[in-house]
Design a protein around this nucleic acid. Structure first.
Lengths: 323, 323
DNA sequence: TCATGATATGGGCAAATGCTCAAATCTAAT
DNA sequence: ATTAGATTTGAGCATTTGCCCATATCATGA
């Protein structure tokens, strides 16, 4: 009667709890073992085994991928490309109605980005910010992308002086070990003098120059409803928001607001951004976005040729295409 | 009360069963939904949902990876590299004792190979054969490696004239879309005249030349016990097997038999192979192998410098290192 | 048209899993 | 050394899952 520990793993007293969790998850998912078997193999209780597996899942140690392109999603990808003249489109299968679309989109996008980073050719990636991108980065696995460069398209300091909460470049760099160039400056200047000042700072200058010369930009998109992220996070006052909407603003990319035809507004708010307006001329811009609220913004950006590629979910893709 | 079908998926009568299975698996694994919820979302019965998810797993539509290097495995990798002067080593966590080590090793190796193929730089990969490699290939996902070349190190015709059962290059090519160059000839010639004939065939010549100029070789390893694969598959007679063992043979790579010090035997059987003797001088050779039975062969190959890299499991790694 | 075999479907049940709660153990500050 | 707070552990139980079996549906050929 074998009582576990046969692999010579658990008696090593210094294994970290995460290692044990990973091992339990491995036995469960790859080995197809039941929790009782895992418990026996590892010499622990059934409950502990269950907790370890649950923990491994919760901590994102487990990556599940569906390796079968669903016909309907492929079709939507094709339609999106045709309709908006995109060079690339990815459509994730829909998660149950009502659920946060990011639950499905982020784990779907992450492996695609991983592939970008596994290329041995050195590239520079320009990054936006936001909850969407942040969630995607959390689903990235660690890849060796030390030969790439990451540069932020947008400042990292919120109006209250705090570091912007949804900044993604640092987390991205953690996962890829790429050299990273955050834009260490406020997102938005308060007046023209400040703008000139910030833009004259050497490191800001360098970041802006690098951003403009990137090989690919990956951005999110913001809507301009009552809960517009720019407003909620304090980058816009209520008056400015109203004003921008009156001027036709329906969405923003990296804080630069555009109208329903995808034309950037000629508005002071747009002129005060310290970061760069996404240079759609110079590089492909790929946008990650899904959800009803983002639909008008996304439609405008796509229609106006602001994007060269899009990651979205089935539901949003369908809505984009059906007029 | 929503009765499902909201995503506009299931009413499309022409969705393939596989698509539905993939979608159910997506909802289950990524969406974390219960089978009842999946059933409702897809407008099917609970049992059907369960069957779809099971089917997706069975058909390999699901890829689970543990994205956490277990300390003990890393340690073993380091030890293997130090001990045998390897440039690379990968050690998969052990699956329960007694189980086929390939259950754990194959899903562990596959993603590593995928990465090799996702490189944009064109490469030529030389491949061996065998049950181990075949199982690994089954765990590969589809990657776009159309710019690479695959070449077989060994003939693909068994002594009875059938195509060799464990040939991997075709399956490999299916997964990667790479150009492939099988060696369309018998594995072994019956005499010197036949050998000269086969080797003079233009396509064999070309394959052999390409194989010798590959950038990386990926091979399995065979043992020389009573159930030696070369013997079981009819490439050796019982007498030859006995003879080779008496001459010190403990293992083989691509049909070329070597002794306990990793020196190829000067034996007629070795001279009749139509394929190439793995050109360890000209390229790195990585070997995938695990299991007690392969231990002597693996130890000899590693000790004799026949390999530049190894994929194995925890148990085998531990045994290799502990003398 | 009907018979026949193969495949798919849903009910029912045993096994496996996830979760809550109380006890135990550990940590750290007095 | 002691105690308050936090974390971990295992028992019990409700939920979920996997699987067997009887029935229904489908395809095929007489």
């Amino acid at each position: 009667m074998t009582k576990g520990n046969v692999q010579g793993c658990v008696e090593d007293s210094d294994v970290s709890p995460r290692d044990l969790a990973a091992r339990a998850a491995w036995l469960s998912f790859v080995g197809g073992m039941t929790q009782d078997q895992i418990a026996q193999e590892l010499g622990i209780s059934r409950q502990r085994a269950q907790r370890l597996v649950a923990r491994a899942s919760a901590e994102g140690l487990i990556r599940v991928r569906i390796d079968h392109p669903i016909a309907r999603c492929l079709e939507l990808e094709r339609d999106l490309k045709d309709r908006f003249g995109l060079e690339a489109a990815w459509v994730s299968p829909g998660i149950g109605t009502g659920a946060d679309p990011l639950i499905g989109l982020a784990p779907f996008v992450a492996p695609v980005l991983e592939r970008f980073f596994e290329d041995t050719q050195s590239k520079t990636f320009a990054l936006g910010t936001g909850r969407t991108l942040k969630t995607v980065v959390e689903h990235l696995r660690t890849v060796d992308g030390a030969h790439h460069k990451l540069v932020s398209l947008i400042g990292n300091v919120a109006p209250d002086g705090s570091a912007s909460f949804y900044e993604v470049i640092m987390r991205f760099a953690e996962k890829t070990r790429a050299k990273h160039y955050p834009m260490s400056a406020p997102v938005s200047a308060r007046d023209d003098a400040e703008l000139v000042l910030y833009r004259s700072l050497p490191h800001v200058k360098a970041s802006r120059a690098l951003a403009k010369s990137a090989d690919l930009a990956i951005v999110g998109i913001g809507q301009m409803g009552d809960d517009a992220p720019l407003y909620v996070d304090g980058f816009l006052t209520a008056e400015e928001l109203t004003d921008l909407r009156a001027a036709g603003g329906v969405g923003e990319i990296c804080g630069h607001i555009f109208d329903g035809a995808g034309r950037y507004l000629d508005h002071p708010v747009n002129h005060r951004m310290v970061g760069v307006q996404v240079p759609v001329q110079e590089m492909p811009v790929y946008c990650v976005a899904a959800g009803d609220s983002k639909l008008p913004a996304l439609r405008a950006a796509l229609g106006g040729g602001l994007l060269a590629g899009v990651f979205t979910d089935e539901r949003t893709a369908r809505d984009l295409i059906s007029q």
